[in-house]
Nucleic acid binder design. Structure first.
Lengths: 188, 188
DNA sequence: GTCTATATGGAGATAGAC
DNA sequence: GTCTATCTCCATATAGAC
């Protein structure tokens, strides 16, 4: 008997989770089918382009979420220092203290990087720019703000790798705290 | 006609490269066969445990290389600040300005982490300890040295992710320079 | 829109001749 | 120690009934 009628967006969260845990290559359609509750037929109905189209949709979804929850506040807040503090707290929550990795970062490190290169670069570029702009409004010179922002965005990825490597979420907390301290230090 | 007789160690570099580029799952025996010049028969003769044993051997090889080239000098040099500077230069060279990723870091981020958890943790732990010890001899208090070392080890991984994400080796150079500046700052 | 059945290819791994 | 042939399994993707 057919399940309740669904739509494309209902599958996205489950697909994202499978890509996050198993990577693009390791994300088999069986796993995706299990995680979403949709059969292969339905999945190909929603995503005729197969896994590639699923990954595009997931990356687009993540981009949208970060834009709204992380980047826009950094760009628009009247209290830039506060917005930076909120970003750190959001990072801690979103990545679950390092227990959950960054799908975009993992793709960047893997052999599918070239296939999704522009989406990956856009995500990181938007983050760096939004953070740099907040730092500038907080009183930093442009060049210094750019450097700090780039260092922080990279540092967060490093914190994720390291906390998984050490298998210790405390590592994530400590490295993130060090990044926060650099971002929130008084402008020279 | 059979090729010149080889041995296990002749295959390691090629196998490592395939794992680095394609990840554990993406590293098919065909690719490994092509990269090493050995047929599947020979590969299974050298590594009866298949891909798993190949990965163990590669990780062990990398561990050995880093121990000799990077960790031992950090632990033993009479000029710790100089040793730290050398480490940065070695990192720049080894990872080819971010064009070459860290196999251990990539494994840590992927779903094979649990399978090789202790080797991965050992590699990062040895690095962190060796660097912290050099920082202590350079005049830092133990707690500060530990924190600086952890931040730097994580930061290098982040620099690799970011430079691939931005597809810009200048990112690697800049982030690595920022890490070096923190490591070489005068002790408080 | 959902499902089952199936096509086709390539995966990891093994056997055995040389 | 090397190779080719082969086994089995599961991958992505498709076709078509409901």
């Amino acid at each position: 008997m057919p399940r309740i009628v669904g739509e494309r967006k209902d599958a996205l969260k489950g697909i994202a989770e499978v890509f996050r845990v198993h990577g693009f290559d390791g994300a088999s359609l069986s796993l995706i089918s299990e995680a979403t509750g949709f059969g292969k037929g339905s999945l190909y109905h929603f995503f005729p382009g197969g896994k590639e189209e699923m990954a595009e949709a997931v990356l687009s979804d993540i981009d949208h979420w970060f834009e709204q929850q992380m980047f826009a506040p950094l760009r628009e807040s009247g209290r830039p220092r506060e917005a930076i503090g909120d970003m750190i707290a959001n990072v801690e929550r979103y990545f679950q203290s390092g227990q959950r990795i960054c799908l975009v970062g993992a793709f960047a490190l893997s052999d599918v990087r070239d296939r999704f290169a522009s989406r990956i670069a856009d995500y990181f570029t938007a983050w760096r720019q939004a953070l740099s702009y907040a730092l500038q409004r907080a009183g930093h010179a442009v060049a210094h703000a750019d450097a700090l922002a780039e260092d922080a965005v990279a540092g967060i990825q490093g914190a994720l790798v390291a906390s998984r490597a050490f298998n210790d979420r405390a590592v994530f907390a400590r490295v993130l705290a060090a990044i926060a301290a650099r971002l929130l230090a008084e402008p020279a």
